[in-house]
Each structure stands twice: as C-alpha cells, then as structure tokens.
C-alpha cells in the first residue's frame, strides 16, 4: 500500500502530469473567438480557407466567448471596444489565451496620437503572442498561432494566470484609460 510507485508522487506532481496531458489537448484544439476590431481581420479568411487551412492545426471559429480558448484582437482598439473586449475576456473559460494582431495592439500603430485609441494592449489585458506588421501577412499570422502552441507546450502561455495574480494592476490601468469599466449603455438596459 505504501510503496506503490504511484503513491510516491506528491499531489503536486500528479496535478502537473494531468496539466501536461491537458496542455496536449489544448494546444491541438484551439478554438478562436475573433474580435474583429480593425483591418487585420482581413488576414483571417485566407488563413481559414483553402490557402492556408487553419483547421489542420485544429483551430476553428467559435460563436461565443464561453466556448472559445483564444481571443484574437485584430487591430486597433478604441475605448468603447476596449471596454467590450474586457467584458468578453472575463467571460471566457480558463485557460484562455490572447493573440494581438498588428502594430496597433503593440504600440498604437498609425493611431498612436488619436484621442480614442489605446496604445498598448498588454497594459489592460494580458497578451500571450503578438503578431507584428501593419498589417501582418498570412504567413506570420499562421506562424503566430504555431508560436502560441509552442508557448502552451512550454507552459509559457500563462497570461490568464498573470491576469489573476496582478488583477489590481490591470484594473488600475483599465480605470485610468476608461474611467469606470462597467457601465450601462442605453442599448443594454
């Protein structure tokens, strides 16, 4: 009873093993939620259809935040869309990942001096992979997805853990940019 091989493992090690098995499934079946805010979204149709065929990596579009694993932020985020993006991100079920597309999510891009567009996405929500370019071509989009899979394999895609641990910092940044994060607009009363 005492000296079976399985019971020598601590609970932590067993959890780790399960997590690794789960990571295998998670990286081979990434379901995307496409938040098509800007022009980088036009790179997704060629990535999904017969030219590059995302489905061979196990990726596919999903209808709602609850079902999805990856949130694709394709392009600039105005304050109004950032607010909705935060709502969406917080609704997704864990583990969840974010891929930011284009220079707008990295440093504001050509909208760096606009009164309505934020400059760094990773101050407000944690981004796992950035795909650079204005706009990125489809090869680099696909490369970004493969990178995300490698990160999941190496346990480095832990943006959702960071968001939990540093929640105060993220909330503070969100508050600085948006004022109140949760507001009621007239269309959802």
């Amino acid at each position: 009873m005492k000296s079976t091989k399985f019971s020598e493992l601590t609970q932590e090690q067993i959890d780790r093993k399960w997590w690794e098995i789960g990571d295998f499934f998670r990286r081979n079946s990434l379901w995307m939620l496409m938040y098509c805010t800007g022009c980088c979204a036009i790179e997704l149709p060629p990535a999904m259809t017969s030219a590059y065929d995302m489905e061979r990596l196990g990726m596919g579009p999903m209808a709602t935040p609850r079902q999805a694993d990856v949130l694709l932020v394709t392009g600039y985020l105005s304050l109004k869309t950032l607010r909705r993006l935060i709502y969406t991100y917080e609704q997704m079920s864990e583990p969840k990942y974010i891929v930011g597309f284009g220079s707008c999510t990295i440093n504001g891009g050509i909208y760096h001096d606009s009164h309505a567009v934020i400059n760094q996405l990773d101050r407000y929500i944690p981004v796992d992979v950035y795909v650079a370019g204005c706009m990125p071509n489809t090869e680099s989009v696909m490369n970004g997805f493969v990178d995300l899979m490698t990160l999941i394999k190496n346990k480095q895609a832990n943006g959702w853990i960071k968001y939990k641990e540093n929640n105060d910092w993220y909330k503070q940044n969100q508050k600085e940019a948006l004022g109140e994060v949760k507001i009621k607009d007239e269309f959802h009363e």
């Binding site: 990295i106 001096d113 009164h115 309505a116």
Partner: peptide, 20 residues
C-alpha cells in the same frame, strides 16, 4: 469635445494612454 480644432488629440493621448 474631441473634434473641435482647439482639442489636441496627441496631448490627450500622451496623457491618457502610456506609450511603449
């Protein structure tokens, strides 16, 4: 209001949204 000509979007953006 932000589309008035005396509004400076660059200054607003610099103050409000931190740059990388």
């Amino acid at each position: 209001p932000p589309l008035r000509k005396d509004f400076d979007p660059k200054a607003y953006s610099d103050a409000r949204f931190p740059k990388r």
